[in-house]
């Protein structure tokens, strides 16, 4: 299976281990990835809010790059995923704006026709690889590992995009964890917000919110947390020392990127999956 691969900014910088792990796991899953080398940032929440046309153009350009290669577009970041899905929808709905954007893209010989399928690695596991095939590939079932799924926001909300009347009903990560042999943990933080999008100017919101989620996961018996989003991972892992300070207690909660959890079940080592590159030690999972 071939995909145009869009890692996003985070997996190329502060969460570089995600990119490495994803590429290792992709080989094992027989996913052939063509990275969109000249792809820009999708604009996160910032450009999206203050420059809607710039936001749309950046995203449609990424969609057009994948379309040019004739490939579906796979991401590993919740916020990038929602941005690309939203841009695809705006492009479809507003024909005038779509024409304007294509005029801009024509400057570099690109044109978007609106055919790119946007997907996330989590969805690829179910839709393109399938539960049965995945189960066959698991050589190291993670028996005894209680894992708390942390969805984040942009892969389960807004309701208009994903169809959940109550986003807490999302079960994809729990179903996946079970498939890999883990025991999913039920806790209050599952589909809550990590606060990443305000962290660059004021990290107190992220520290307070995510502190509640990690404590809830721990209270309910989680040995580790897993997230499909590098932005959530940054707060859960890289901010955990500050979170511990704010909460006044040790948490020591290892946080895995989704491909890392899959990779462990496929028999890969901690080093191969760059688990040693996290701020919170993952040694307890060995």
């Amino acid at each position: 299976m071939k995909f145009a691969y869009y890692p996003g900014c985070s997996a190329k910088s502060t969460c570089a281990e995600l990119n490495v792990a994803l590429r290792k796991v992709a080989v094992a899953l027989d996913l052939q990835l063509t990275e969109l080398e000249s792809a820009t940032c999708t604009g996160a929440r910032e450009i999206r809010a203050i420059d809607p046309v710039g936001f749309l153009t950046l995203n449609v350009r990424i969609l057009a790059l994948a379309e040019r290669d004739g490939l579906p577009l796979m991401t590993v970041c919740n916020t990038c995923t929602l941005n690309l899905i939203d841009a695809n929808a705006i492009f479809e709905e507003d024909k005038d704006l779509a024409r304007q954007v294509n005029l801009r893209l024509a400057e570099e010989g690109l044109e978007y026709k609106g055919t790119t399928r946007v997907t996330h690695f989590l969805w690829v596991l179910f839709e393109d690889i399938g539960a049965e095939r995945l189960r066959e590939l698991v050589v190291n079932p993670l028996n005894g590992l209680s894992v708390a799924a942390f969805y984040g926001c942009h892969i389960t909300r807004p309701p208009g995009k994903y169809g959940f009347i109550d986003s807490r009903n999302n079960q994809s990560l729990e179903q996946l964890s079970e498939l890999l042999g883990c025991k999913p943990v039920d806790y209050t933080g599952r589909t809550e917000c990590c606060g990443f999008h305000t962290a660059a100017h004021d990290e107190r919101i992220a520290i307070k919110l995510t502190g509640q989620h990690i404590q809830s996961a721990k209270t309910n018996g989680a040995h580790a947390m897993v997230t499909p989003c590098p932005l959530c991972h940054t707060v859960l892992d890289s901010f955990q020392k500050e979170i511990e300070k704010d909460a006044g207690k040790k948490l020591d909660m290892p946080v895995l990127h989704l491909p890392q959890l899959v990779g462990l079940a496929l028999g890969m080592s901690h080093e191969e999956l760059r688990l040693d590159k996290h701020v919170v030690s993952t040694d307890a999972l060995r």
Partner: peptide, 9 residues
């Protein structure tokens, strides 16, 4: 499978 809405009740 529509993986985007697994668990939708």
């Amino acid at each position: 499978v529509d993986a985007r809405s697994i668990g939708k009740a």
